[in-house]
Design a protein around this nucleic acid. Sequence first.
RNA 1: UCCCCGAUAGCUCAAUGGUAGAGCGACCGGCUGUUAACCGGUAGGUUCUAGGUUCGAGUCCUAGUCGGGGAGCCA
Length: 543
Amino acid sequence: MDRLYRIAAGPARFQGRRFPRPPTASTMIPLWSPSMSWITVKSAFKSPVGTSVTIKGWVRTNRESKADGGLCFLAVSDGTCFDPIQCVVKGGGSSAVANFAEVQKLTTGCSVEVDGEIVASQGKGQAVEVLVDATKGGAVRIIGLVENPDTYPVANKRHTFEYLREQAHLRVRTNTFGAVARVRHTLSMAMHRFFHERDFFYVHTPIITASDCEGAGQMFRVSTLDMCNPPRMGEGAEAAKKEGTEASRHQGTREGGSAPSAVDYSHDFFGKEAHLTVSGQLNVETYCSALSRVYTFGPTFRAENSNTSRHLAEFWMIEPEVAFADLKADALLAEDFIKYLINAVLTERPDDMKFFDERIETGLLKRLGDVLDKPFRHLPYTEAIRILEQAIAKGQKFEYPVKWGTDLQSEHERYLTEQHFKQPVVLMNYPKQIKAFYMRLNDAGTDGAPGDTVAAMDVLVPAVGEIIGGSQREERLDVLDRRIEEMKLPVKEYWWYRDLRRYGTVPHAGFGLGFERAMMFLTGMQNVRDVIPFPRTPKSAEF
RNA sequence: UCCCCGAUAGCUCAAUGGUAGAGCGACCGGCUGUUAACCGGUAGGUUCUAGGUUCGAGUCCUAGUCGGGGAGCCA
């Protein structure tokens, strides 16, 4: 400890023993202090006029002028805020920096270190700028040039998002993707803060799962077996070994002859089949049954062949779980959560949000403000069906029929949230046959439903659609077992999940919020591939 | 996975089956406390891949690859 921190006060005593006093914010002297030698562009903007500063960053644009015997206007960004800072580099007389000829040749993307003075700007477009005058110690040190500016992938001009996706390693240097990155960070922090402030504990649920019981779509296999010659079950094992790769080559064509027997996963790394997780919920429920309020936030994997602007093979999901909570409480938590996130990005990243409002989605700020103003509309599924049927009777056209007991289609959800209510809608109490086994069975006739319903909820928001899916969980072992049986699931696999209902079961509820969908909702970005740094989609895992 | 659309200069897009074009960007010059600058000039192409039709294919046909929009699945 004393190697890292200088201890300001003497040793403390705890139960009679001497301990170094734990460092506090006021006694910690940071070892890593870049502000000693340079400051961020963000803090340069906040520095008073007259301050000598050094900044480091990348050139966004370089404009030249013949005024004052020669000037270069370097817009330099270090990503710490939306705006680059303008550095006015002198090129005439004794004020000229020594390497002015090189500075003139700087192009978009070059990295530089600039010494100068914060001054009030003479031009329009910025309040302050960095004056680089050699007589006042001003200098520009070139750190890295852009070789062949003609082919620099993110030249200073408009690019389509489709093109920039192919330049994912450089796209974060653009206005849009820099803003996305900062808002994404802000959203992560706000999300943790929201739960932390409400006594939730962050639980790291596993990425690899060996239980095939999560049941939320196709999974990616995790294996260390030799794909060309995997061990086989029973007698087939010997045959497969003899035939070598021949056997596996015929795996796909199971016609005639002896089909190779199933792969013996007892020889695999975990001794059984393993996959990447599709949800942390079942695991987090175990911690909920001891810590009361928990959440998990991590990557989630779906091997579905989904080719849409709203799906990724690898995405991040936030899943809170609350003990002693019912569906109503769950819905209110979800609403508080979404509003907290909106407020956080609006107050913490006003520069980026202004940009999204002006260039990405006109009216974004108003849309988000409207969501903050009104309570979410709660609506039973059964009532939603009635509204949709009435809409059809009045002439509204849908591609898919509306019928109690079937899932609502995207077009139905969009109608409800974008046209009928024009605000976020929480749909509740869905027919049991279209929802997962762990959702709590409602009493017969809840909301006047003609069939059995479960305590499920979906939060639908304009422009994005389903952003949250959640439910009250089935805490009654006998009812849970009946549901597992009805859905023909392997009850043995759920032994530890069932244990939670055997030993001190409690009502509990939770939801899952797709982090990238929240990003789309908050930024107005229309493609999920543009709100995650390195998107993974079918046929695409570059970078 | 299904339906529709697309792939031509670094980028965005034109080009009736008959010599490959523009804007932006880059480079050079002019002008300017500039800032989506402006004006003039220069360079830049195996038209996604493989077949096919044709005297002749960027253009028509077949297959494939990749990309986009929509749908399903969902978050």
